[in-house]
Design a protein around this nucleic acid. Sequence first.
DNA 1: TATGAATGAGCCTTCATTCAT
DNA 2: CATGAATGAAGGCTCATTCAT
Lengths: 199, 199, 199, 199
Amino acid sequence: MAKKEKALMKRRRLSPPVRRLELIEAALGVLRTRGPAAARVEDVTEAAGAAKGTFYLYFASWEDLLVAVRAHLLSTYVAEMRPRFKAAASSGWWTAFEYECLHFVDFVVGLGELHKAVFHGPIADRPLDPAISSDRLIAGMLRTGIESGACRSVEIDTAARLVFSVLHTTADGIAQTGDRERKLDSMLDLLRAWLPRPG
Amino acid sequence: MAKKEKALMKRRRLSPPVRRLELIEAALGVLRTRGPAAARVEDVTEAAGAAKGTFYLYFASWEDLLVAVRAHLLSTYVAEMRPRFKAAASSGWWTAFEYECLHFVDFVVGLGELHKAVFHGPIADRPLDPAISSDRLIAGMLRTGIESGACRSVEIDTAARLVFSVLHTTADGIAQTGDRERKLDSMLDLLRAWLPRPG
Amino acid sequence: MAKKEKALMKRRRLSPPVRRLELIEAALGVLRTRGPAAARVEDVTEAAGAAKGTFYLYFASWEDLLVAVRAHLLSTYVAEMRPRFKAAASSGWWTAFEYECLHFVDFVVGLGELHKAVFHGPIADRPLDPAISSDRLIAGMLRTGIESGACRSVEIDTAARLVFSVLHTTADGIAQTGDRERKLDSMLDLLRAWLPRPG
Amino acid sequence: MAKKEKALMKRRRLSPPVRRLELIEAALGVLRTRGPAAARVEDVTEAAGAAKGTFYLYFASWEDLLVAVRAHLLSTYVAEMRPRFKAAASSGWWTAFEYECLHFVDFVVGLGELHKAVFHGPIADRPLDPAISSDRLIAGMLRTGIESGACRSVEIDTAARLVFSVLHTTADGIAQTGDRERKLDSMLDLLRAWLPRPG
DNA sequence: TATGAATGAGCCTTCATTCAT
DNA sequence: CATGAATGAAGGCTCATTCAT
């Protein structure tokens, strides 16, 4: 939303949840476009068609916005991933698991600059609602796999972090230098050597 | 070095390499203590017993300092790691490789806050002298292993990045929540399942 | 407005045109008082009873302020000069022209240090809105004179610059060493020998 | 003189007048090249093949250098102009005068950016050795002309300033927008209408 | 006389956050 | 709820000048 358009706009009175969501979605765009280092509060409100002060009616600080953006992003992802995996796993855990891994890599690649804002940056240490934590998600998949006998019996929580890191590194690499196929092959090579129950 | 002490100090004229090193070492301390986000140019010069302007005789910008810190850190590490691995690998590649992995994890854990400043942060994308790049180092070890037949024939560059990421994640986890033994076990479990030549 | 007073002041919310004008007028005072070389952004905002940051809501840089000050000064001058000359010229071009020349000299003398800031200094090369350019004004007067036959047929644009320079030099001289009458006499002597149509 | 060359140079012990002149001449080049606003002490010493501190052995401050540069420039000019005019004036004052005016315009045009540094800028108000003052020079010429009856009897000092200003303005105009012939014509038109004794 | 490392005051500019309307 | 003008702390960087060698 450019400034010219804004100048023509009236004061828009929206219900709080709607306004909040508009700000978050505007932030998604701004963080992608300008990058997390250059993004400013005013960029977000401008993109959302709101006044600068309005920001602070919905978020106590810039970091709080980032937390909300992260939550929005992950909960959206989880909402579609969870039922999809559940359905697929019933007919073959490993296939379903691999599929989700590939899917997650694509998701992270698609985030572009955004992923720095939510996975690194100032909120990297802030606790994440377990319901949408990537680690927990992966841990859940591993647990299913171990219980069904399709996966080796690994230390679930630690392994989940390692899986996450492997997926994440693969995504970063693809985003930086491309060469998607080779990187995915290496990743799958690792996962297949490491996780499936032998035999 | 507090400001009060500074007021009492004479002008210290040092040779450029020495002054530069003092600034880098002061930066190591400051980045650890205040964290990479809060550290400022003046913190570094104060800690180094130098005037603010002196900083800019040696570094064109804050980011340039970070690059120098990174180079200092890695080249120091590499200088001792390379001969050590070379010697150890001759009597058993896998043992030597595992040892270096564990050693590197400890190194990263020891960096504490510093590792954010040099591995993430604004210089994350800046090219690194290949001679001291962690990826290249690991790639070198893998190559030796593959050539000697001790390691599976993996895609070296991609695998090196994955190894690095696994070590790094393990170190981060230990730094955050402790539980060193369990995390190292998981890491080794992964590496042993993935890399050694079967049989 | 001293800092102590400022501390007691409330936040003054003004409409942008008003605040902008207050800043410009504060700048007029500061440039006169401290001189163009020593004047700083903070002097202006302090004199205007505003916070330092407010400056940058209205001017992108110090030079932009100078441009605005120049425009303010000249357009104010032009607004009263133009109708005055028009009226006077109808009953006698040369008398009207001489009067405006004398008037302009007094105006420049009255600027004091200010004239360095707007006529020399870093914005000397910046283009000026032709509607308020001194050269254009003078050229306009000359054109009227030539058309009415009261003035010799000179190269208008070039002559206008020379007239301006003569007025300006006279003003500078008066500002520096006084002796107003003698300098004005010399100036008029030059103009009378040069411009009026002989006979 | 580039830095590389400097690195190869020994400490050069020169007689003070020579070193001083080298600095002044280096300054001439630097002021032309970088412009008076951007020129720095270090640029001058570097161009002169001297160390930064050496500057202050010869000039108390940056402004003092500018004064010295101005004196150098003008005294060089005067040294050749004075005898030339003296010789030419004996056979025809007006022709000699016009010739010197044109010559001076070319001189100022040739100064380029330099003229800002010496005629405007921070030393504009500093007194000038009368022996090399442009105003005095011109006044000298006018006096000769008046005494010989070739020039109208004008107020010498004031008129000299006006002549200087007219020459200077013409030079500035040529430097900025070219069109040399037309501007010189206008200038001569003014001078011829103003100064020669009628008849 | 010469060097060049060191100093530190000074200034601009940004931008998260506040608050009068 | 909304606005957007105002704030001011913060910090990067420059460069004339000094001084230990």
